[in-house]
Amino acid sequence: MSAASVVLPPLAATSPLDGAVIAEDIVKSEGSVEIVAVTPAVDYEPFLPDKKYHKTSPPELLTLTEEQEAVYQEVLKHFAAEDYVIPDLKDGDGKLTEEEKFYLTYESFLRFLRASRWNATNCIKKLEEALGWRREYGIYDTLTVDSIKEHCLNGKVFIFGYDVDGRPGFLDIPGRESSPEGPCRIKQYVWMMERAVEIMPRGVESVAVMMLYSATSKSTSFGHSKQIVDTLQSYYPERLGRCLLNNGPFWLTILMKLIDPFLDPVTRSKIAVNRQIIAEGDFTPDQLIKEWGGERELVWECDRYLDKLVEISGKMKEKRLTKWRELGGNVGLREWDYKEE
Score class of each variant (00 low, 15 high):
residue 2 S to E: 13
residue 6 V to A: 06
residue 9 P to V: 00
residue 12 A to Q: 15
residue 14 T to C: 13
residue 14 T to W: 11
residue 15 S to H: 03
residue 19 G to R: 08
residue 19 G to D: 06
residue 20 A to V: 05
residue 25 D to R: 02
residue 27 V to E: 11
residue 28 K to M: 11
residue 32 S to E: 07
residue 32 S to M: 12
residue 34 E to F: 01
residue 36 V to F: 07
residue 40 P to W: 05
residue 40 P to V: 01
residue 48 L to V: 09
residue 49 P to Q: 05
residue 50 D to G: 11
residue 52 K to F: 01
residue 53 Y to S: 02
residue 59 P to A: 04
residue 60 E to D: 13
residue 64 L to I: 00
residue 66 E to R: 07
residue 70 A to F: 09
residue 72 Y to R: 07
residue 72 Y to G: 08
residue 75 V to R: 06
residue 79 F to A: 01
residue 79 F to Y: 02
residue 81 A to E: 02
residue 82 E to I: 09
residue 83 D to Y: 08
residue 84 Y to R: 01
residue 86 I to E: 03
residue 86 I to W: 02
residue 87 P to S: 08
residue 100 E to F: 01
residue 101 K to V: 07
residue 102 F to A: 04
residue 105 T to A: 10
residue 112 F to W: 05
residue 112 F to G: 02
residue 120 A to G: 04
residue 121 T to G: 04
residue 122 N to E: 15
residue 125 K to C: 13
residue 130 A to D: 11
residue 135 R to V: 02
residue 137 Y to D: 14
residue 140 Y to C: 13
residue 148 I to H: 00
residue 152 C to G: 08
residue 152 C to Q: 13
residue 154 N to R: 08
residue 161 G to A: 07
residue 163 D to Q: 02
residue 164 V to S: 14
residue 169 G to N: 00
residue 170 F to V: 05
residue 176 R to C: 08
residue 182 G to Q: 01
residue 183 P to K: 05
residue 185 R to L: 14
residue 193 M to S: 01
residue 195 R to M: 07
residue 201 P to T: 03
residue 211 M to E: 14
residue 218 K to W: 12
residue 226 K to G: 12
residue 232 L to W: 08
residue 233 Q to E: 10
residue 236 Y to V: 03
residue 239 R to D: 06
residue 240 L to H: 10
residue 240 L to F: 14
residue 241 G to C: 09
residue 244 L to T: 10
residue 244 L to V: 13
residue 245 L to M: 03
residue 245 L to V: 10
residue 253 T to N: 06
residue 254 I to G: 09
residue 256 M to L: 14
residue 257 K to N: 15
residue 259 I to Q: 07
residue 260 D to P: 14
residue 265 P to Q: 11
residue 266 V to W: 12
residue 267 T to E: 14
residue 271 I to F: 10
residue 272 A to L: 07
residue 273 V to W: 06
residue 279 A to M: 09
residue 283 F to H: 08
residue 285 P to R: 02
residue 288 L to T: 01
residue 292 W to A: 10
residue 296 R to F: 04
residue 300 W to H: 15
residue 304 R to S: 07
residue 311 E to I: 07
residue 312 I to F: 07
residue 322 T to I: 11
residue 322 T to C: 11
residue 324 W to I: 14
residue 327 L to C: 04
residue 327 L to F: 04
residue 328 G to H: 06
residue 329 G to V: 07
residue 331 V to Y: 01
residue 335 E to F: 10
residue 336 W to S: 05
residue 338 Y to I: 08
residue 339 K to V: 06
residue 340 E to L: 15
